[in-house]
Design a protein around this nucleic acid. Structure first.
Lengths: 340, 340
DNA sequence: TATTTTTATTAAAACGTTTAACTAAAAATT
DNA sequence: AATTTTTAGTTAAACGTTTTAATAAAAATA
């Protein structure tokens, strides 16, 4: 049978309390008994039961990772990688991640994730934008709440964000340095803080280079930054503005659609029109030509937010820390010198 | 404070045992008390503690999903989707998945995943090939062990497999129907049962069409079916055999490499050489031309293995069921009529 | 009416830990 | 030598459930 703490105690000739103290590295245990107990633990291959532990210590060793259905399905490669980073870092810190996908339209009164209700987590990480309501509901519980790739209106939480603004700047500066002056911008969901910041980076980069911002050069009314919408947006943009020689897409998914349209319209990339994306999604690599983009360290973001969580749970950190993850330009073949 | 079963009992004027019985829908509870208790539960927003429950009932509500580091990192999109399917189905059945990545060279004596040691799971799902040793170690515990996308040598486990053989046949039949007679095959890790079966499908399809199997038409000595190795294999294959007009790659990842080589070598796809992959990975869609392939319902596989697990845990199933998941040809633009 | 059977509920033990309070022995201080 | 302090370990309660066996009340049977 599976050994319990009692078996260890019996074998080592001590009380179960002593075994527990040894496990927790309590100072008031003599070296002699410590080694004796450890020997018994090893020989029996004893491991404390998580349930029993959780019951009394109120620590479960689990962290919830919450993301909306929409985000997860539509931007799967992106959030999957953040999740992987979190998962990886969690293991380092002896935690498990409970992945929880919620409806995108969660409302007050809806059922919270089961792991929360059953107090089966020590903390909650929220990835991407979620409805306000779920935050309000989660606040009632007293575990730490961390955010990654989204900063909720209330400013009191630890968050890990991409430096979207800088990324937008870098993308556009890259195009400018290639001689482009007529640079389009396509986006979906412009309400989203991340997209806004990228747009802001675009504008400021233009401004810094003394290029006037032309509002007809940006298409931001697509409802979601997905491939189909990139196709759409590019069509709209280029039908109206023949002078455009480069397009900055708010993400890679849309950029793929943009490229698709350009090819269909008989334009060659980057000779006629340069394209740059944002996110550095796997698929961009196998495009023809491979997509230039802004690289986002997704795995790193995930592990960073988990590291923050671990620090909080270990009492190492108290103030809500904000972390801005730097991004970098990845030059591939979809951007080139501006045509004359 | 968070309500416990005692609070509910007090409020409903019954013993805690009654509350517990109500929760478990025990028949011998009068309708009157049942509704009274349920009312109290709702009013207090009571949810049983997972830890306390687990301690006595030995049910954790968790399932481990084990995959090797190699598989997860190198074939991420593939196993990620299986994982998602499992996760999705788990939620339907009120389980949580604990994702656990193990070293690819796990040996007897290595530390098993913590969730197993701490008895924090009710069952274990293993995805993809894993070392024999970990299976032997896991057997000592008495929870169900299910496999997906890998069938261990011992035949006593429930498994969910792709119909690799049929997939291989379909791919090659498709090429044959386009008039191809000189069809190459590239693979890595030919020891792997799945790859073997695909290879077998290739051979039988040729045989059925009265085309002699030519061993120089297959390159199977790459160590892992990844893009770089596809590039390699295609080079080897075409340098030696000018007559080849079509290549069946054991998976999409390698097929991407194959296409890359063909383009570099100045051949056009599918006019000069047709290419077909296997797996239907996202990236294949945005290739130029989009990759023809054998579609594998990855999400479906994941949910199927979880469904099996749930049935076992609920006592609905006892014999180790084998499920063969059918695959289908997905015709895109990388395959076309054979050149003359 | 007395007895048996059925029904509804409860008391209490058990699950495997942690931890605060306690004790006994040893060491240090007076 | 008597007292205090420190050290090393133990006792016992607590955590929040489930579940078996017991019991009381009601219904059925004799």
């Amino acid at each position: 049978m599976i050994p319990t703490i009692k078996d260890v105690a019996r074998k080592a000739n001590v009380s179960i309390a002593t075994v527990s103290l040894v496990i927790h590295n309590h100072k008031r245990i003599s070296d002699e008994t410590r080694t004796r107990v450890n020997k018994a633990i090893k020989e029996l291959n004893y491991h404390p039961s998580r349930s029993a532990r959780g019951l009394v210590s109120r620590k479960t060793g689990n962290i919830a990772f919450i993301v909306t259905e929409d985000h997860f399905l539509r931007s799967e490669p992106f959030y999957t990688r953040i999740f992987l980073g979190t998962e990886f870092e969690a293991r380092q810190n002896e935690y498990y991640i409970l992945l929880t996908i919620i409806k995108s339209d969660f409302k007050k009164g809806d059922r919270l994730p089961r792991c929360v209700l059953e107090r089966n987590v020590d903390g909650v990480i929220i990835a991407g934008k979620v409805p306000e309501d779920i935050i309000t509901c989660l606040e009632k519980y007293d575990f730490p709440l961390n955010f990654v790739d989204y900063s909720p209106p209330a400013d009191r939480y630890p968050v890990v964000l991409i430096d979207n603004f800088s990324g937008g700047m870098q993308a556009v500066q890259h195009l400018i340095s290639l001689g482009h002056k007529h640079i389009g911008f396509v986006a979906g969901d412009i309400q989203h803080p991340s997209i806004r910041d990228r747009f802001q980076g675009y504008k400021i980069a233009l401004e810094n280079a003394d290029i006037n911002y032309n509002s007809t050069y940006s298409v931001t009314d697509e409802n979601y930054p997905a491939r189909e919408n990139g196709y759409h947006a590019a069509k709209k943009l280029l039908k109206a503005n023949k002078k455009i020689t480069a397009i900055f897409s708010c993400n890679d998914a849309m950029a793929i659609g943009v490229m698709q349209y350009l090819k269909e319209a008989g334009m060659s990339i980057p000779e006629d029109v340069s394209v740059i994306g944002f996110d550095d999604v796997e698929a961009g690599l196998s495009l023809d030509p491979p997509l230039s983009t802004i690289g986002v360290p997704k795995i790193e973001m995930g592990s960073e937010v988990m590291r923050l969580m671990a620090d909080i749970l270990n009492g190492k950190v108290t103030s809500p820390k904000k972390v801005l993850i730097p991004v970098e330009l990845i030059e591939r073949k979809s951007t080139g010198p501006a045509r004359l």
